[in-house]
Design a protein around this nucleic acid. Structure first.
Lengths: 237, 237
DNA sequence: AATGGCATAAATGTTGACATTTTTGTATCT
DNA sequence: AGATACAAAAATGTCAACATTTATGCCATT
C-alpha cells in the first residue's frame, strides 16, 4: 500500500531536509522519513521488514540500514529481536520536544546574532516579507508551515554551530514537523508569530545576542503554551 | 589489530552508557564506540568494512548497521560510496560541543531542580562525598572522570526529559568523553569543579531552578574556558 | 470455557556471494 | 619528468538464502 512513497519523497513539501540521495538505502531513508512525518505510516505502527521490502521492492539490507538511520533521528524506536515501531507522540513527549527546542534554539539565535552574514539576514527579511504578503492577501491569519520552517532553519544555520544545527534539524525538527503535520491545529502559525519573527530579526540585525535569545525563547514558549492549551482542550493525543 | 576490542567493551571505564547487548550488531556498536572514544581507532581513521569484518571475524551486514548507529551518535561521518571515517575533534568542534552542552545541560538542571526525587538527590550527595574523599586522600586536586560523568548523568536523568537526556547522553557526551580521554589535560576535573558541584546540588536541594541553571551554566562555561586556554597554549589538535 | 503446551509459521538476525563504483597503479604520450 | 588514460584491484552497495528467535494457532487438559 505504500507504492506511492517514491512520489511523496520527491514532491512532498516536507523535504526541506537533506534528501540522502545517491544510494538506495539513502532513498529509503528519505522515503520512510517523509511517510512517517506525514502519518502515511501512522504513529506506533510496526515497520515490518519483510512487508516493506515486498511493497517497496527492495531487499532487506538497505531497508535495515534506513531503519537504523531513522532510529538515529528519533523517528522510530527499535527493540532487538522484536522490530521497529514509529514513535508515538504523546503530549508529554511533545512538551519535552519544545522544552529542548527552547534551550537549543535560543542559544542558536544568540550565536546567529553574532555570526550571521548580511546575506543571511537579507534572506530573513525576504521570508518575513513573504509571510506578511501572504497574510495580507489571504483573509486568514496564518503563516504557511513551510515558510515558518525556512525562517527558523535560516537562523539555525546562521548560528554557524554545526552541533546545535544537527541536534535541531536532524533530530528535533523532524519530530516537530511530524507533530504539526498530523495535528491540524498546530499546522500553521498565528499572526502573533509574525510579530515575534520581526522582533527576532530586529535583535539579530542589532547584533544583540541577549535580546535575540530572550525573544526567541518567548517565541517558542508561546508556541508550547498554545499547544498545551489546545491539546488539553481537545483530545490528548 | 583490534582483537582486544571485545575486552575493552566489557571492562572499559568508558562504558557508563548502554551496552547495546543481545545482538551482534549491538555488540559491535558498543565495541566500536569504545574503540573510538579511547582513540584505539584514531580520529579521522577510515573504518574499512572489509578489514574490520576480517579483524573482528564478523560479516559486513551487522558491521554496517553498527556504523549507521555510530553515525547517529555523531562519532563517525559517512560519505556514500566512500565509506566511514572517525570524526575529527577540531578545536572549533570541541568549543561548539561545549556551547551546545551549556544550552542543554543548564536546562536539564533547571528541570532536575523541579523533578528529581530525594533518592536521586541523595545519590548526588554520595557522589560528591566520594569525590571529596578522593581529593583528601590523594594528594592531587582531581576528580576522576568517571565520578564526574556519574554526577552529570544523574542530574541529566533527573530532569525527566527524555529528549534532553537523549541529546546529551547519546550524542554529546560520547564526543566529550572522546575528547577528554584523548587529551590528558582534559581528563580530570579541578578542585574548583567540586565547589561548583556542591553549588549545583545546593540549588537542586533548594528546588531553585533558576539558581541551578545559572550555576550549571557557569560550571560548563568554566570548563570550556579552561579547555580554550590550554588548547591555544599547547598544540591546537 | 479457560489455560497451558506444543507445533507451525513468520519475523528478525546473520551470512556469503554478486554488482557497481571508486581507487590505485601502470603504461603511454607529450 | 609530468600528466593523462586505461586496466586491474579493492571497496562499498545490494541481494538472496540460511539461522535463530519470537509470535501464532491449534490441540489437549483441567
Amino acid at each position: 500500500m505504500l507504492t506511492f512513497l517514491y512520489l511523496t519523497s520527491i514532491f512532498h513539501p516536507m523535504s526541506t531536509v537533506p534528501p540522502f540521495s545517491n544510494t538506495l538505502s539513502g532513498e529509503l531513508t528519505s522515503t520512510l522519513r517523509d511517510a512517517i512525518i506525514t502519518g502515511e505510516i501512522p504513529q506506533g505502527a510496526k515497520l515490518s521488514e519483510t512487508k516493506l521490502s515486498q511493497e517497496l521492492d527492495v531487499s532487506r539490507g538497505p531497508l535495515r540500514e534506513a531503519i537504523r538511520r531513522l532510529e538515529g533521528m528519533n523517528l522510530i524506536q527499535h527493540i532487538p529481536q522484536q522490530g521497529a515501531r514509529v514513535v508515538t507522540l504523546s503530549m508529554e513527549l511533545v512538551l519535552q520536544l519544545y522544552e529542548t527546542r527552547e534551550a537549543l534554539e535560543s542559544k542558536a539565535v544568540a550565536l546567529a546574532a553574532i555570526n550571521m552574514t548580511s546575506q543571511e539576514i537579507d534572506q530573513l527579511h525576504r521570508l518575513i516579507d513573504a509571510q506578511s504578503k501572504h497574510m495580507r492577501e489571504n483573509s486568514g491569519a496564518f503563516i504557511p508551515a513551510e515558510s515558518d520552517y525556512a525562517f527558523h532553519e535560516t537562523i539555525i544555520r546562521g548560528s554557524k554551530n554545526k552541533v546545535i544545527e544537527q541536534a535541531l534539524l536532524r533530530e528535533l525538527y523532524n519530530l516537530i514537523k511530524m507533530f504539526r503535520y498530523q495535528h491540524e491545529f498546530a499546522r500553521n502559525s498565528t499572526t502573533n508569530s509574525l510579530i515575534e519573527h520581526r522582533q527576532i530579526v530586529y535583535a539579530i540585525e542589532q547584533r544583540d545576542p541577549e535580546l535575540a535569545e530572550v525573544t526567541m525563547r518567548r517565541h517558542i514558549v508561546h508556541a508550547r503554551e498554545r499547544i498545551q492549551r489546545r491539546m488539553s482542550a481537545s483530545s490528548a493525543a
